[in-house]
Design a protein around this nucleic acid. Structure first.
Length: 473
RNA sequence: GGCGCGGUACCCAAGUGGUAAGGGAGAGGUCUGCAAAACCUUUAUGCGGCGGUUCGAAUCCGCCCCGCGCCUCCA
């Protein structure tokens, strides 16, 4: 049974959805003011693995994710770029989905764009007003924290020391109490705004998640996920708004992903340790290696991102690819090795157990590599049989259904190549045959020359006991 | 200061009372005309430090040291 660390209780709890067999999950998506960075993608990979594991466990999943396309930064950057807010955010939404595709992220069932839900938000704010949870100042509407007794239950933060009236945010200095937060922001000159029953303005950040989560998932839903920095104030405020209105628990399990650090420090542009996905691809690292590294450290622990770690991830994937290649392209004796059969049969359970334990991806990796080593050892001893191959391949696919870092089993190598340099499989086979003839004639100079030429063309030659095999690098 | 995460080999990392998974790197080996690749083996009497509990502790308790995050821009 799945167990998740719940920020509400600060404990690992057994997970059971509200409705049997169905999970409703909300994750905080990006604010589309720029390209997302790899820290963002760590959190999204975590959510992706969670959703895959839920589905693999047999749950029917309804997963909603928001796109924040109106806030101070999107407005500021759009203005600086001389674009309309919509054109500007469209651009970064498109970039976001490109990145998500590159990183093999599954698309949530529901994508909710904030600016498509303005009337819903206005409506919710009006209801909060009617029930006395808000007040107005200078055209803005604020949520009054002291009206919600449960405030702080998620972050366990004690705000009693904060003084009412302190100036905190230039935009919000009219608040009655610094702990209050804005629901509806009055427009400043040159800012986009919406006409509404609340007057002209735009929504605050927190209200969008409350409104869209409730709209698509119900007043109470199962899982709310996001980065650890959102615990306070974002998620705390979501709870306040939502539960003030409904009187019911908002999300039942709050799961948060710890931050990614770069070289032991928080990423920042001024430190020069700030990476987008594009930066890393530009340096020649593969999307699979990036996804593997982001997935390999369990989400409860900070991940120290280094380029060395990325290289280690790439090497680990290569080991798996080699293993699969070896299975697919060697010949084995008939029959089946019962020991390997037993290990193969036990694997899905080992994988499930690791992931059930608060998504322990490191353990899931360990389980796979143990199987790989056992199988390789059996192959070396000539003890792995044809009857074992399919089962092992199925384990790899099973594992890859979560991690998704291995290319499709066949025909992939053709995809990762520059068409201009690409030799066809037939040409390669012919060259290899020429080299084999040369070797048989002990003309090693010619054989090596052919081999070097192939390497130059990105084709790797391996002389094995079972003959020559090749693959593209 | 409050809340939270963590300190396990050269690097990453699992392990919540029974004698240290796994990956990367290094070293040795198998194979080979030579390479390369691949594969195998190997690498922590030790788990930040000091005490304590226990037959037994990386795991439990106490004290201490160190790193990081959040505390109203933040994944």
């Amino acid at each position: 049974m799945l167990a998740l660390y719940n920020t509400l209780s600060n404990r690992v709890e057994p997970f059971a959805p509200l409705a049997e067999g169905r999970v409703r999950m909300y994750t905080c998506g990006p604010t589309v003011y720029d390209y997302a960075h790899i820290g963002n993608y760590r959190t999204f990979v975590f959510a992706d693995i969670l959703r895959r594991h839920l589905r693999r466990s047999g749950y029917e999943l309804r997963h909603a994710m928001n796109l924040t396309d109106v806030d101070d930064k999107t407005i500021r950057n759009a203005k600086a770029a001389g674009m309309s807010l919509t054109d500007y955010t469209d651009k970064y939404i498109a970039a976001f989905w490109e990145d998500m595709l590159i990183l093999h992220m599954e698309r949530p069932e529901i994508i909710a764009r904030a600016t498509d839900h303005i009337p819903d938000m206005v409506n919710t704010i009006q209801q909060l007003e009617e029930r006395g949870f808000t007040y107005r100042r200078e055209g803005s509407v604020y949520f009054r924290i002291e009206k919600f007794p449960g405030y702080g239950k998620l972050s366990k933060i004690d705000l009693s020391g904060m003084r009412p009236g302190a100036r905190v945010d230039q935009d919000e200095y009219e608040k009655a109490d610094v702990r209050d937060f804005v629901l509806w922001k009055a427009p400043k000159p040159d800012e986009p705004y919406w006409e509404s029953e609340l007057g002209p303005g735009r929504p605050g950040w927190h209200i969008e998640c409350s409104v869209m989560a409730t709209k698509y998932l119900g007043e109470t839903f199962d899982i709310h996920a996001g980065g650890t920095d959102l615990v306070f104030p974002h998620h705390e405020n979501e709870i306040a708004q939502s539960e003030a209105l409904t009187g019911k628990p908002f999300a039942r399990y709050w799961v948060h992903c710890e931050h990614l650090l770069v070289d032991g420090q928080k990423m920042s542009k001024s430190l020069g340790n700030y990476y987008t996905l594009r930066d890393l691809l530009g340096r020649g690292y593969s999307p699979a290696a990036i996804r593997y590294l982001l997935a390999s450290v369990p989400h409860g622990k900070q991940l120290n991102f280094t380029l060395e770690g990325l290289q280690q991830a790439a090497n680990a994937i290569e080991r798996l690819e080699n293993f699969r290649f070896r299975l697919a392209h060697s010949s084995f004796p008939e029959g089946a090795n019962p020991e390997i059969e037993a290990k193969t049969a036990a694997f899905p359970e080992a994988l499930r157990k690791a992931l059930d334990d608060d998504l322990n991806t490191a353990q899931a990796l360990g389980a796979l590599f143990e199987l790989v080593r056992d199988a390789n050892t059996a192959i070396d001893k000539g003890q792995l049989c044809q009857g074992n191959v399919e089962g092992i391949l199925r384990c790899l696919e099973d594992w890859n259904g979560i991690f998704d870092v291995l290319p499709p089993a066949e025909g992939i190598s053709d995809l990762k190549l520059d068409a201009t340099f690409q030799l066809s499989a037939e040409e390669i086979e012919r060259k290899i045959q020429e080299r084999q003839d040369a070797r048989r004639g002990r003309n090693f100079a010619l054989a090596d020359q052919i081999r070097d030429a192939l390497v130059e063309a990105g084709v790797l030659i391996e002389d094995t006991r079972d003959g020559v095999r090749w693959r593209r690098k």
